[in-house]
Structure formats: C-alpha cells, structure tokens
Simulated assay, not measured.
Amino acid sequence: MSLQVLWAVLLAHPAQSLNALALFFGLAGSWLLLATRVREQRAVARLSAGGAAKDMADEVCVFDAPTQRLNRFFFRFGFVSLAMSLALSWGSTQL
C-alpha cells in the first residue's frame, strides 16, 4: 500500500483513525501498567524466597530508591497513556 492511499484513508475516516490511535495508546499504557505490577510482584517473591525480606507487611521498603523511582515513572507513564487514549477517543466523537 502506498503512502498516498494511507493518507487518503486517514482523510476519509478521521474518527476511525483517531480511535485506532486511541486503541494503540490504551493497549500500550495498560501493558506497561501490567508489566510493571508483575515485575514488582516477582521482585517481592524473589526477595521473600531468598529470605532477604523479614517483614512482608511493608512491601514498599523492600525496593531500593532507584527501583521505586523507575516503578513510579512507569506507573505515571502508563496512566498518562490511558488518559491520552481516553481523550483521543472522546475527541474522535466530535469529528
């Protein structure tokens, strides 16, 4: 498919194009949130299996500062992606 045909489809159906972009952002953001949560759970399980974590009631103190900052960044970026997806989806209804 040539670039001109893709551009023509974009111009012919702008709402569907925005919805496709919103779907992409929604899937990317949800995958990032899910992957970050699974990574956190695996790290806690690895620490508890190794005996490094004495008290599992306070999970936040298990991670070091750079890991916590990275997880917070990934959570924020995931939520921003989901919010952008919602805004694009709402915006496509106005076209």
Rank of each mutant, 00 (worst) to 15 (best):
V38T: 01
E59Y: 07
G51C: 08
Q68E: 05
E40F: 14
H13P: 03
L32I: 13
R76Q: 05
G26F: 14
L21V: 14
L10C: 00
P14D: 06
P14Y: 05
T93F: 13
R42P: 04
N19D: 11
S30T: 13
F77D: 01
D58F: 11
V60R: 03
A15E: 07
L88G: 02
Q94D: 02
A12L: 06
R37P: 00
G51D: 11
F79P: 00
Q4K: 10
V9G: 02
V5R: 06
R46H: 13
N19S: 12
G50A: 13
A57E: 09
L3F: 11
V80Q: 04
A87P: 10
F73N: 03
V9T: 06
A28L: 14
F77P: 03
Q4M: 10
E59N: 02
A43W: 14
T67W: 10
W7T: 06
Q94Y: 12
A53I: 15
F75R: 05
V38E: 07
L32D: 01
A43D: 06
Q4E: 10
G26T: 00
A28P: 06
A45F: 07
G91D: 05
F77W: 08
G29V: 03
L27I: 15
F25H: 10
M84R: 06
L10P: 02
D64E: 15
A22Q: 06
N71F: 15
S2Q: 07
A87D: 06
P66Y: 02
A65F: 14
F25N: 01
A28K: 05
W7P: 00
A20G: 11
A65K: 09
A45I: 04
L95D: 02
S2L: 02
A8L: 12
D64G: 12
E59Q: 12
